[in-house]
Simulated scan of single mutants.
Amino acid sequence: MLPKNHRLRLPQDFTATVRSGARTGRRNVVLYARVRINDPQGNNRFGFIVSKAVGNAVHRNLVKRRMRALAAQIPANANGLDFVFRALPGAAEIEWDELNQQVSSGLVSVVRKAGEKHEKGP
């Protein structure tokens, strides 16, 4: 489990990250990232969205556990970011290695896009 200070918990944090953050999609997951203006050097925070379209509760919880494990492996060199991982319906059917590859490649892209978006300003 991620520590409390590494989790997105408020609905407005999820909404701000999804609506105003950078976005990149992969076959089974969509990643959003946003640089926090009020805490740019704080911990990275992660949120997960896994809808009923992914499957029953067993499949949804499996996908959430896998995504939390992937989030825990992210190096702390990109501080002050909020991430939201949205699982798409095929996420429950793929193997760990494929999900890991999709999230890893998506993270590289979304972190770069979030930095560019932050530098441009509002």
Rank of each mutant, 00 (worst) to 15 (best):
P89I: 08
K64N: 07
V103H: 03
F14A: 06
V29Q: 00
E95T: 14
S20P: 06
R45W: 04
L81S: 06
V30E: 00
N79W: 07
L70W: 07
A69T: 15
N56G: 11
L8Y: 05
E95Y: 09
I94V: 10
R9V: 15
I94S: 00
N79D: 11
G21W: 05
A53V: 05
N28W: 00
V30N: 09
T15K: 08
Q12Y: 03
V18Y: 02
K113R: 05
Q41V: 06
L107M: 08
V29L: 05
V35L: 12
R19Q: 04
V35C: 02
A92G: 14
R86H: 10
L62T: 13
V50C: 08
G55M: 12
G21V: 13
A78F: 02
K120C: 01
R65D: 14
A92L: 06
D82Q: 00
M67H: 06
V29G: 06
T17S: 02
T15P: 02
G55L: 11
A114C: 07
F46W: 02
H59E: 00
I74S: 00
I49Y: 04
P40A: 02
G121V: 13
I94H: 06
R26E: 15
H59G: 04
V103P: 08
A72N: 11
H118N: 04
I37A: 15
A91P: 15
G115W: 09
Q73P: 08
N100P: 14
G47F: 09
Y32R: 09
R27N: 01
F85T: 12
G47I: 15
L81H: 03
G121A: 13
A78G: 02
R36K: 08
F83T: 15
N38H: 13
R60I: 12
G21H: 02
N56Y: 04
K120V: 01
G47H: 11
M1K: 09
R7Q: 08
E116R: 03
N43G: 14
V63S: 02
A57C: 14
S51L: 13
K120E: 05
T24P: 06
K120A: 00
R7E: 03
N5S: 15
P11L: 03
L31R: 11
V110I: 14
R23Y: 08
V35Q: 12
K120L: 06
K4I: 13
A76N: 07
V84G: 14
A53S: 06
A92M: 11
Y32H: 02
R86C: 08
R36G: 01
N56P: 10
M67F: 06
K52E: 12
G121F: 10
L107R: 05
K120R: 01
D39M: 10
L88I: 04
E116K: 11
Q101H: 07
E119H: 07
R45H: 03
S20A: 12
G42E: 07
G90W: 09
L2I: 15
E116L: 03
R66I: 00
